[in-house]
Computed example of a mutant assay.
Amino acid sequence: MSECPPPPFDGLRKLPSTIKFLEISDWNRVTSGKELTQMLCCLPKLSELTIKRCGKITGLGVVEQLKEEETDEALLLLPPQLQKLDIWDCPELSLRADSPYGGNGGSLQALSSLHSLDIDHCPKFLACYLPSPSSSGFPFPTSLQSLLLDGVEKLAPLSNLASLVNLQIWDCGGSEGAGLRRLLAHGCLSELFVTGTPNLFSTECCSEGTLEPSSSPSTKLQWLETDDVAGVLAAPICTLLSSSLTCLSLWPNEEMERFTEEQEEALQLLTSLQQLDLSDCNKLQCFPAGLQRLSNHCVL
Rank of each mutant, 00 (worst) to 15 (best):
S135V: 06
Q268G: 12
E23S: 14
S25W: 07
N160M: 02
R182D: 10
I119F: 02
L36T: 04
C172G: 02
D277W: 06
E70G: 13
L76E: 01
K283V: 00
E48W: 11
L267D: 04
Y101K: 13
L15N: 11
S47A: 14
A127I: 00
S132T: 14
L111I: 07
L49K: 08
E48D: 10
L149Q: 03
E48Q: 10
G209A: 01
G174E: 04
L269W: 08
L147K: 12
D118T: 03
C206S: 15
L241H: 14
D150V: 00
D227S: 05
E92G: 13
Q222I: 00
C281F: 10
G61M: 09
K56F: 02
D171F: 00
C90V: 00
Q83I: 00
P79V: 12
A162W: 08
V30G: 14
P131F: 04
H186E: 08
G173Y: 03
T271F: 09
N166K: 10
S2R: 13
L144Y: 13
T246L: 01
K124F: 00
W251A: 06
G177W: 06
C247R: 15
P100M: 11
L148R: 14
L22E: 00
G151N: 02
G11F: 14
L126M: 15
C172V: 00
T239Y: 05
P252S: 05
E191W: 07
L158W: 02
A156T: 00
L46C: 05
D72K: 07
W170V: 00
S175D: 11
L233Y: 08
L276W: 06
E208A: 07
L12H: 06
R29Y: 08
G102Q: 03
T219G: 11
F140I: 03
L155E: 02
D120C: 06
P7L: 04
G231F: 03
T203A: 10
C238S: 11
L192P: 09
C286Y: 09
P236K: 13
Y129R: 01
E208R: 09
G106K: 06
G177A: 06
D26N: 07
E23Q: 14
S146K: 14
P252G: 06
P213A: 04
I51V: 10
C247S: 15
G11R: 15
S113Q: 15
L126K: 12
F193E: 11
